[in-house]
């Protein structure tokens, strides 16, 4: 049932749209402008000269390619390991009964219950003694920790949401348990699993703190390269071009999230 009149103009809404557009989309547009500005001197309102010169410059830098490779390698490895160990666990949490199930399940919340950077510091000090600081696998392990919560909780909720009768009906027509899982359970839970995997991949790609803490200075990911670009103020446009490039995975994620995970689902997952 609707409570609003269809023809009354939504003034509050329009005011919100204008304000949010300026504050939220505006800064992104400025970054976009900078990426294609060959020359933009104060106090001109717009660039004096447009072009792709800085794209060539950015893409010609070996450190960009090294960082991109490192980031992609890390994201793939972490996502793969995370999925391999978490998805079976999620199924177990959703469908099996075993000793300590609830306690174990809630234990993943401990990742969320502490300020993350403090956690990373405590892990880093242990890694220091293990010689893992400054190594690829050290970064991979610390990033893996970040992914556990989502990779367990979202698929568990998805498996739980599947009506058992669907599985029972499949058993009824003669499918074995593995066949049922493969043909009924998995396809039903797939959207949420895809969402969790995307979230893990993108989250790992942009993860900054752990990579910096454990990886620096030997392992440089894209966000860390970006930090150094910003801090050293090399050429303004390099940061802009890198931002646009960096945003691509996020954009793909945006589209996927729209499809697989509504805002309500996201809010519930975060405990709202």
């Amino acid at each position: 049932m609707r409570t609003s009149e269809p023809f009354r103009p939504d003034w509050i809404g329009l005011a919100l749209v204008v304000t949010l557009s300026i504050v939220i989309i505006g800064p992104m547009l400025v970054v976009g402008l900078w990426a294609f500005a060959e020359q933009w001197r104060y106090p001109s309102l717009l660039p004096q000269q447009w072009g792709l010169r800085f794209w060539h410059q950015t893409l010609a830098r070996p450190d960009v390619w090294t960082a991109l490779r490192t980031s992609l390698q890390l994201s793939f490895v972490v996502t793969l390991i995370s999925a391999a160990i978490c998805l079976p666990a999620a199924y177990a949490f959703a469908r099996m009964k075993f000793w300590g199930r609830d306690m174990f399940f809630l234990s993943f919340l401990s990742i969320q219950a502490f300020p993350r950077f403090g956690l990373l510091i405590t892990i880093a000090t242990i890694f220091l003694s293990l010689g893992l600081v400054g190594t690829f696998w050290g970064v991979a392990i610390i990033q893996l920790v970040n992914t556990l919560m989502f990779m367990i909780w979202i698929p568990t909720a998805a498996f739980q949401a599947i009506d058992r009768k669907l599985e029972e009906a499949a058993r009824d027509v003669g499918a074995g348990p593995i066949r049922v899982f493969w043909s009924v359970t998995l396809p039903q839970a797939l959207p949420a699993i895809v969402a969790a995997i995307m979230l893990t991949f993108v989250g790992t790609f942009y993860e900054t703190e752990g990579a910096w803490l454990i990886g620096a200075p030997h392992v440089r990911t894209m966000p860390i390269l970006m930090i150094s670009f910003i801090n050293n103020q090399l050429v303004i446009q390099l940061g802009a071009v890198l931002s646009v490039l960096l945003w691509v995975p996020s954009f793909i994620f945006l589209l996927a999230a729209r499809r697989y995970l509504g805002p309500q689902g996201l809010g519930r997952g975060l405990g709202g």
């Binding site: 800064p27 966000p223 970006m226 910003i230 802009a240 960096l246 994620f253």
Partner: peptide, 14 residues
């Protein structure tokens, strides 16, 4: 859907 690192850069430019 905007990584904080990009936001930080945008902040400085704006």
């Amino acid at each position: 859907f905007v990584p904080s690192i990009i936001l930080a850069y945008a902040f400085i430019r704006v």
